[in-house]
């Protein structure tokens, strides 16, 4: 009778190993992403000021009462940036999660079914991937009429195919592996094979791809908003805030700059987190 010899891979050791691999920058990224999510949830509750009301003179410099000062109309800039973070962050996450779920499922079914279904699905995905998607999304929103929801829909339509491709390639790679062949030979039925033997193997790559993609989505949304394709005037969106206050850049430089800096931090923390996750999941 032979017993397992290396039983020391228990969970505390794995946790420690995971933390070591994430490294300090990855940890900063993950903590940052969590903080941003909390801030985005609370948003206006973090400040006493109404982001839409004129509450003081215009162009006040940063002070104790108004941390970021006031904008060209006299609204509290900090409150507006918080609202902007909320809409940008939640919108980006929802597009990414939608694309991730839809793309993964389509890729899973396409890759696991193979044959004609796979061929057809992949040609459709090819078509989407060969289109200049940002361009079409911009044009589409311009035609449909500006607005956050329209931007989200337009981007989501063009974002999932890439996940379908990543997921499908990963599934095909797994499908050829002996352990999946073994499961098939053991008579595991199709849906169970997909969910228990194929999908978990593709999840790490998909998670990494999605985390690193959040910043792309933030940038795409902010560009739309900057170009005037987001919510109309009184609303607070990070891109649009910079665009509308561009004229005051010479004197009151912080008014257009601060929303853009906020965008930078959203991207930076999500990229750090993605980089850390990649180190853990890929073990490099």
């Amino acid at each position: 009778m032979i017993r397992g010899m290396n039983g020391q891979t228990n969970s505390p050791a794995r946790l420690y190993e995971g933390l070591r691999l994430i490294g300090w920058s990855g940890s900063v990224g993950i903590v940052g992403v969590l903080l941003i999510t909390i801030v985005a949830m609370l948003a206006t509750r973090l400040t006493p000021h109404d982001p839409y009301a004129r509450i003081a003179e215009a162009y006040l410099p940063p002070s104790e009462t108004h941390w970021f000062g006031t904008d060209e109309v006299g609204r509290d800039l900090f409150a507006r940036v918080l609202v902007g973070v909320q809409s940008t962050w939640l919108a980006s996450l929802s597009v990414i999660i939608f694309s991730l779920v839809l793309g993964s499922l389509i890729g899973l079914i396409s890759g696991a079914t193979g044959g004609k279904v796979d061929f057809l699905v992949q040609r459709i995905v090819d078509l989407f991937l060969v289109l200049p998607s940002t361009m079409i999304a911009l044009a589409a929103v311009a035609v449909l009429g500006p607005g956050l929801l329209n931007s989200i829909i337009a981007l989501a339509i063009f974002w999932w195919p890439w996940y379908a491709r990543v997921s499908r390639d990963e599934i095909r790679r797994l499908y050829a592996r002996p352990h999946v062949e073994a499961a098939r030979a053991a008579g595991v039925p199709g849906p169970r094979l997909m969910l228990r033997y194929l999908l978990p193997g593709a999840v790490p790559s998909l998670i990494i791809a999605a985390t690193l993609d959040v910043s792309n989505m933030i940038m795409a949304l902010s560009v739309m908003s900057f170009l005037g394709l987001g919510q109309p005037a009184p609303s607070a969106e990070l891109g649009a805030m910079t665009a509308r206050s561009l004229d005051s850049l010479t004197v009151f430089w912080w008014i257009p700059m601060l929303p853009a800096v906020a965008l930078f931090f959203l991207c930076f923390f999500s990229n750090l987190a993605g980089d850390g996750l990649r180190s853990v999941l890929k073990g490099t």
Partner: peptide, 22 residues
């Protein structure tokens, strides 16, 4: 249906499922 013993025993087991499950 026939059962298969594969060439590389390590890669013929799914890494995230326990031996008993498989």
């Amino acid at each position: 249906r026939p059962q298969v013993i594969f060439q590389d025993p390590v890669s013929a087991l799914t890494p995230w499922l326990s031996i008993g499950d498989q």
